[in-house]
Design a protein around this nucleic acid. Structure first.
Lengths: 246, 246
DNA sequence: CCAGTTTATGTCTTTGAGGCAAAAACCTCG
DNA sequence: CGAGGTTTTTGCCTCAAAGACATAAACTGG
């Protein structure tokens, strides 16, 4: 590739108002909504009733509106499938733009990652279901890839942010929380270590002396909550820290 | 927000081929190209000669072509400003879509983060300059925000990936490398600790016994190189590791 | 060859992660 | 009401990584 590559437009980019647009390019907004269901990580999918990708499963979303922001749009689109108030977290994930990803015409898609706490079970339409994220059905477009990105992002953020708040109910015991982590991370998480790590990082705290009785015998468990329910990065996680003087 | 929110289109999203598109929405592709210049983190900007944002500074990029993928497009656009072969790293950053971000009409923009090693000094056009990332001039659109995102991303990745390879020349002394890190992180980095951290992580290695003489006296420094020049995540960085048995 | 400068090495401290076992608290059943 | 089973909590110990600091090594210039 050389400096003098020929481009379709002047170097000034959008300095000139678009007069004769290229063949229509549409923009979709999608969401990978994840939640722990029955000890497994699940993703919200709906079944396509019409082509393209008839009978395949698809991420919720749809066409970006003419006057909408991206975040605004994904909330509106999502509202057709779940109550958006049930989302404890929503963040932009990635944008896909392979020219052939939509057989019906050029379509870009910006994907979001949404999380629903394990205790809320939103009403969802007929065509929509929770699917285990580890065993996806036949998916439309590149949606299976996008689910993969979302899972990786979630895994990464579980270890350096407090994003667990978006998977767990407002209050939980440590063994419950370790099950949520196990579902999302894909491996066992010792409750006793998890407790210490999250306590030391100040992410969780004991919710008074509240203690629900066990169901099948055993010592009653203490209840915990996340100190904040908004995303925070564990600062001590940056290696090569600045010297304390600054 | 309620479930029965009214949407502009059927729930099926792009199940129906777009027939009557909304007012034209165009898609730009931008890049935040960063490099360490004279011990400071710098970003490649070009000065707009015409409205909108005449005389303001802008990120390189331009309109997405009709048949291009996003990565493909940013490479082509970037080729107008620098030799793309000089980029040691390029990754997607984020997509901006605020309805009013472009006064001339709806424009989405997908931003990339590009890195140029400190030893290469690409030929750049008249209207293009390296600017210190910490002191941005008056910028067009939301480009100043995007530069902020890029800097945060770089900072984060420096601590849990080997992305330093894209800032440093192929071979370097530890004091040089610590200067690159300082420029990118914004604080001092002790060369002696940096050495141990990166060696232990297996990111860098000594390049034989090569030792260039000092210029102003002093013990000659050993030369190092990054073991690989492609992005790798420091695996030991995930807390809550899986038990060794698995 | 001495003074100054820069890099390299080795030691020590601190901190966080994680394993493990004993103790605590509760249930059920005899 | 006590014994045995179950689950959680607590304390203790190890291990690994990060970082500070001091000393040693290697070179240059007078």
């Amino acid at each position: 590739m050389h400096i003098d590559d020929i481009s379709e437009r002047p170097a000034s980019g959008s300095a000139v108002p678009p007069a004769a647009p290229d063949p229509p390019t549409s923009h979709d907004v999608l969401a990978v909504v994840l939640a722990v269901r029955e000890d497994r990580l699940a993703v919200l999918l709906w079944r396509r009733a019409r082509p393209p990708f008839e009978d395949r499963w698809s991420l919720p979303g749809g066409r970006l509106g003419a006057r909408e922001g991206l975040g605004e749009s994904i909330r509106r689109q999502l509202a057709q499938k779940v109550d958006v108030r049930d989302l404890a977290h929503l963040e932009q994930l990635e944008t896909r733009g392979a020219p052939d990803r939509d057989p019906y015409g050029r379509t870009l898609a910006t994907a979001y990652l949404g999380l629903v706490p394990a205790d809320v079970d939103p009403v969802i339409p007929e065509d929509t279901r929770w699917h285990p994220a580890a065993e996806l059905p036949a998916m439309a477009y590149d949606h299976a890839d996008i689910v993969g990105s979302a899972r990786r992002r979630l895994r990464a953020k579980l270890s350096y942010t407090n994003i667990g708040f978006a998977l767990a109910p407002p209050e939980f015991t440590m063994s419950e929380l370790s099950r949520y982590y196990r579902a999302a991370l894909g491996h066992d998480v010792a409750a006793t270590n998890l407790r210490r790590v999250l306590l030391r990082r100040g992410q969780i705290e004991e919710t008074g002396a509240s203690v629900p009785s066990g169901r099948s015998g055993g010592r009653p468990a203490a209840l915990f909550r996340f100190r904040t329910r908004r995303l925070e990065i564990t600062d001590a996680f940056a290696v090569l820290r600045p010297p304390p003087g600054r």
